[in-house]
Amino acid sequence: MKLPERKHLSGFTLIELMIGTTVVAGLFYAIATTSLSASNTYDETMRRARLVTKAHKVLDRISDEFVEAELTTITPALPGVGASTITYRVPGSLAGSVITWSGNRTIAFQTDAGEFDDGIDNNGDGRIDEGVVLFTIDAGLATQKQVTLCHDVRSLLGGELSNLGDDNGNLMVDERGLVFELTANVLTIRLTLEDIDEDGNTLSKTVQTSVRIRN
């Protein structure tokens, strides 16, 4: 009896398919990981840039105030001590050679609304004891006006811990996220802002500027 001819079948075996699928899956995983990493890097870089830009805008606004400030009216902020609240006066009007000075102005760190200085995140925004930069004109007078220059100020300056020690090496102890330091006629202003992303990761940046008080 003549056996029927066996037809030659072309195609892939199961093992070949499994190996090929594994290799392709591995390549796709590597590509996806690289893309995700690059995307995260971009997002983080942009967050930092936005935070630094925001901080510099606030410092520029504060610096503009002190360009005209009268040195003798500035709250003494001794080197190594610093202050999170500063009071000063600026020229209000000029009659001949007589300068009329404005009412007291203050720039201060103040705990944000809903937040208390107790080491607890009272307002549930992921940050602890965060504050705002509060600018007050004619402090204590009937014409007093207040404006918030920025939010998201870190409770303590960058690198500092609440431990009665100088952790960041600037000779100040447990200084606030907004701190003024007056040395002779040079006012140094330091500001730390913080941001929290949707994953709960905290990012903080500290910026500094110096202003020469000329009045």
């Binding site: 690289t34 990493s37 690059a38 995260n40 890097t41 983080e44 870089t45 930092r48 840039a49 630094v52 040079v186 006012l187 140094t188 940046k205 910026v207 500094q208 500027t209 110096s210 202003v211 020469r212």
Partner: peptide, 29 residues
Amino acid sequence: STSRLARTTEETADAYEAARAMTEQIHAM
């Protein structure tokens, strides 16, 4: 390289920020 990029960028930004702060301190003197 991508995983290092974030840290390198942060370091460079911190360096230039420190240099800028020193510049302003000098200009204020």
